[in-house]
Simulated assay, not measured.
Amino acid sequence: MIKLSPRLQIVYDMIPACDTVADVGCDHGYLSIALLENGVAKKVIPMDVNKGPLSKASENIQAAGFLDQSDLRLSDGLAKLSPDEADVICICGMGGALIQRIISAGIAVAKSARLMIIEPQSEYLELRTFLMEQGFVIDDEDLTCEENKIYPIIKFHYEADESKRVTYNTAQLEYGPKVIEKAPELLIKFLDKNESEYSSIINKLEQGGASEAALARCQELRAKLEIITQIKNSL
């Protein structure tokens, strides 16, 4: 049995029993193997933009005996995936801007999936804002810590019925509506870390002079500190 990292285990646990899962940026193929081993998915489509990782995933999947249930594809994001081809689409271990680009470029495919699970490693507010504006609704979220960095894992679906869509506030877009709702211990660590980092940057900028750029950055960071205070007071 394949052993998943804590990060991939969270992703795995969010995936319901289904027919087909597409894993974009499949890396070693471990998630696909785990899904097939446990019968969560009947078929997987591991995808990667680079030949090296895809070849390694192919070797691992073949060694596990699941090559006949796997359709490996060399693909830039969702380019080689058709609408309605996958019930679940996973995009993990990338920057938020790259994940946004991948979803935007393959928006019809993304909207056709039963659900998507992403693990962005940056640009959380911008990415969640994009998802909200495109009509996606967040179903679940969790936080994971890897190499002392805290990342969100977000599960969402496209909501065709506009009356069922959700408008998130700035705090929810920055830290995640479901994360704030759950208030896990990692959220407190995440808030404390950002609070310390933002305060330190403000102090350095104020000591370095009052250029227009510095003042604008200080204002931006103070707004982020207000969001942190708002969340902490609500917990």
Rank of each mutant, 00 (worst) to 15 (best):
M1I: 05
M1W: 02
M1C: 02
I2H: 05
S5V: 09
S5I: 05
P6L: 11
P6R: 12
P6C: 13
Q9G: 04
M14R: 00
M14I: 07
I15S: 09
A17F: 10
C18P: 08
D23L: 00
D23N: 03
S32W: 02
I33H: 01
L35D: 01
L36M: 05
N38L: 04
N38E: 15
G39Q: 11
I45K: 02
I45F: 03
G52K: 14
A57H: 06
N60M: 13
N60Y: 06
N60T: 11
N60Q: 13
N60W: 07
Q62H: 14
Q62V: 09
A64F: 03
G65Q: 14
F66H: 13
L67S: 15
L67Q: 15
D68T: 13
Q69D: 08
S70E: 08
L72P: 06
L72T: 11
R73V: 03
L74M: 12
S75G: 09
D76F: 00
G77Q: 03
K80S: 11
K80Q: 15
L81S: 07
P83V: 03
A86F: 00
I89F: 02
I89H: 00
G96L: 08
A97D: 15
Q100L: 11
Q100H: 13
Q100G: 15
Q100W: 07
R101E: 15
R101V: 10
R101N: 15
I102D: 07
I103C: 08
S104W: 14
S104C: 11
A105C: 12
A105I: 01
G106T: 10
A110F: 01
L115Q: 08
I117D: 00
E119R: 07
P120I: 00
E123W: 04
Y124M: 10
L125P: 12
L127T: 06
T129S: 15
T129N: 12
F130N: 14
F130A: 14
L131M: 11
M132S: 08
F136W: 00
F136M: 00
D140N: 10
L143V: 03
E146P: 08
E147T: 07
Y151F: 05
H157M: 01
E159T: 04
D161F: 09
S163R: 08
S163E: 10
R165D: 02
V166I: 13
V166N: 03
T170W: 02
T170H: 06
L173C: 09
Y175D: 01
P177I: 00
K178A: 04
V179L: 05
K182D: 15
K182H: 12
A183K: 15
P184M: 07
P184T: 06
E185I: 09
L186N: 07
L186Y: 04
L186Q: 06
L187E: 10
L187K: 02
I188D: 14
K189D: 12
K189S: 11
F190H: 05
D192H: 14
K193T: 12
N194G: 03
S196V: 01
E197S: 14
E197D: 13
S199Q: 12
S200Y: 12
I202F: 04
G208N: 15
A210I: 08
A210H: 13
S211Y: 11
A213R: 13
A214M: 05
R217I: 11
R217D: 07
R217V: 10
Q219W: 09
E220V: 14
L221Y: 03
A223I: 02
A223D: 11
K224M: 10
K224P: 03
L225R: 01
I231S: 03
K232V: 07
S234F: 04
